[in-house]
């Protein structure tokens, strides 16, 4: 059907409605196709794009990056040491408000070592910029969906950052994007909690990836995203709300707040899964190119 045409003939054909008419074909439409299977087709077409093929092979071969750095271990120790001390102080001296005190102090303890570790390392200029851009995209994601509560791509972007650029970058993108977006949404006592929980999700994503427990497949990332949204983000933010406005923490109270939080958490987790499913492969691929182009070895 395709006889060879030269460019002029082709253009004549291309821009002439009458001539091109004879080539038009009706698009076969199956009336039985339901909305759901259409959605599935949308998701699938993206997956079939051959540009995604080689990444996983490429990464399964990279053995060296699986080791945990020393700084990561030190950070973990600080976390484990400081927490009991603060709790003891809170219980002894803060009376009524011990939970709020302990909670907020813990958040700070948890955030500061990450920041300090990053500072003392003297990060590369390019690294700084990449983290800043990713945080900005995450912030934009949070503000773009302001009308749909709990439907936010921010965690998906944080997880992707952690997986591509390592635990530290993951933590920073999480913490910074939560902090910055609160310049637009309003800072409050919730800021340190949000910073920590978003940061730790990025961190865990990075660690698990290095340990080989988290793969860069869609299913693996989505599963992780779902669990992280419910157990890490929900797991921290729900009791945080309780701690912020009561003093008498009871088992019932905790169970109560978790149960009342379930629908919200589920909605949130679903949105994370949807976003991860849709953007993870493309994003990771793009970030990998940037990593190579900038010579960023994480």
């Amino acid at each position: 059907m395709s006889e060879k045409r030269n460019v002029d003939e082709f253009l004549d054909l291309w821009f002439d409605d009458k001539k091109i008419e004879q080539y038009k074909m009706p698009i076969p439409e199956n009336p039985m196709v339901s909305k759901l299977s259409k959605l599935f087709r949308v998701l699938k077409t993206d997956a079939q794009d051959e540009i995604f093929v080689s990444i996983e092979d490429y990464y399964s071969r990279q053995e060296t990056s699986k080791k945990l750095t020393k700084r990561t271990i030190v950070t973990l120790i600080i976390l484990l040491l400081m927490s009991p001390l603060t709790i003891a102080f809170g219980i002894l001296f803060m009376g009524d408000r011990k939970y709020t005190f302990i909670g907020i102090m813990l958040m700070f303890y948890a955030i500061i070592p990450f920041f300090m570790g990053f500072e003392s390392r003297k990060p590369q200029t390019r690294e700084l910029i990449v983290i800043a851009v990713l945080s900005a995209i995450a912030v934009l994601g949070r503000t773009a969906f302001i009308m749909v509560p709990m439907f936010k791509p921010i965690l998906a972007i944080i997880i992707i950052s952690g997986v591509t650029f390592g635990p530290e970058a993951g933590f920073l993108v999480g913490a910074v994007s939560m902090f910055i977006s609160n310049f637009f949404f309003g800072q409050g006592p919730w800021t340190p909690w949000q910073m920590f929980s978003a940061g730790i999700i990025g961190f865990v994503a990075g660690v698990l990836f290095r340990k080989g427990l988290l793969k860069r497949t869609r299913v693996s990332l989505c599963l992780f995203g779902f669990l992280a949204a419910i157990f890490i983000y929900g797991g921290i933010m729900n009791p945080a709300a309780l701690i912020m406005y009561t003093s008498h923490i009871t088992i019932e109270g905790i169970i109560g707040i978790y149960i009342s939080g379930i629908p919200v958490d589920l909605a949130h987790a679903t949105s994370v899964v949807i976003f991860l499913w849709l953007i993870s492969k493309g994003m990771i691929e793009k970030l990998e190119r940037i990593k190579k182009k900038y010579g960023l070895l994480v």
Binding site: M1, S2, R5, W14, K24, M25
Partner: peptide
């Protein structure tokens, strides 16, 4: 929705 070869179109464009 054309029966033209996609390759040919792109080549020419």
């Amino acid at each position: 929705n054309l029966s033209l070869d996609k390759k040919e179109i792109i080549e020419n464009i």
